[in-house]
Design a protein around this nucleic acid. Structure first.
Length: 221
DNA sequence: TAGGCCATCTGGTCCT
DNA sequence: AGGACCAGATGGCCTA
């Protein structure tokens, strides 16, 4: 607190303000207040005041450290919010960060629900479901309807250009519950539609191994 | 220049 | 008693 200054606030109360702003990486320790020392010649009142100043300085230091940690956590939260980073993007305010994070969680939750619904429809619940009929033995129009339905499902979870594990890896953490569910549900799934193209060309997608893409099926281990 | 945003100080409360 | 947490007050900086 060597560079502390005394200022007069509108309340008339004198307080000490540290002119040096604390940086995000600066480590604050109680040693920063150690330069307030007591001399033998000082009066009791002066000593008491100095002790209070030391206590107050320590409390202020802790508060600054607490707020710094809070800001670090806020920055970490900003980093995982899509489209909130970059040189051309203005830094989100705290309230905006919290609001967007909430919306993002809601969106992800909805995506998980959509995924569950998708796999329930396509694989697990009804082996003789209407959808399977459309996929395997329906008319051309029915297969188109099936393909469009699949597209709708995939687009609903944010996948528009590619399909398969590679794309999933780019959208979701490979370790999270969504991926585990995805891979466990799709272990024996052979999709006969290539959603990367507009001409509805067919190909086989193996989702059991996490290495292959639609166009590179033969490289699958 | 007004308003938004932020850092800091401060006193109070709760917890260990 | 000391630390963590919180909310109010205050002043500085930036932008429209």
């Amino acid at each position: 607190m060597s560079n502390a200054r005394t200022v007069q606030k509108t309340t008339g109360k004198e307080v000490h303000v540290d002119e040096r702003p604390i940086s995000a990486t600066e480590d604050v320790s109680d040693n920063d207040v150690s330069d307030i020392t007591l001399r033998p010649s000082e009066s009791i009142e002066s000593a008491f005041s100095k002790t209070n100043n030391i206590t107050r300085a320590k409390i202020n230091m802790r508060e600054r450290r607490r707020m710094r940690d809070l800001n670090v956590a806020m920055d970490a939260l900003r980093e995982v919010i899509p489209f909130s980073n970059g040189p051309t993007v203005r830094k989100l305010s705290k309230i905006s960060t919290l609001s967007l994070a909430r919306n993002y969680i809601i969106t992800l939750t909805k995506s998980v629900e959509d995924l569950r619904r998708m796999f329930r429809d396509l694989h697990s619940v009804a082996p003789n479901s209407e959808l399977r009929h459309y996929r395997t033995s329906g008319s051309e129009l029915e297969r188109d309807m099936y393909h469009n339905y699949c597209k709708h499902l995939w687009n609903g979870i944010g996948i528009t250009h590619t399909i398969g594990p590679v794309c999933f890896n780019s959208h979701f953490d490979n370790q999270n519950a969504l991926m585990r569910e995805f891979y466990s549900c799709s272990r024996r799934y052979d999709a006969k539609t290539d959603m990367t193209s507009n001409n509805q060309s067919t190909s086989t997608l193996c989702m059991e191994h996490k290495c292959c893409s639609v166009r590179n099926m033969h490289s699958c281990k």
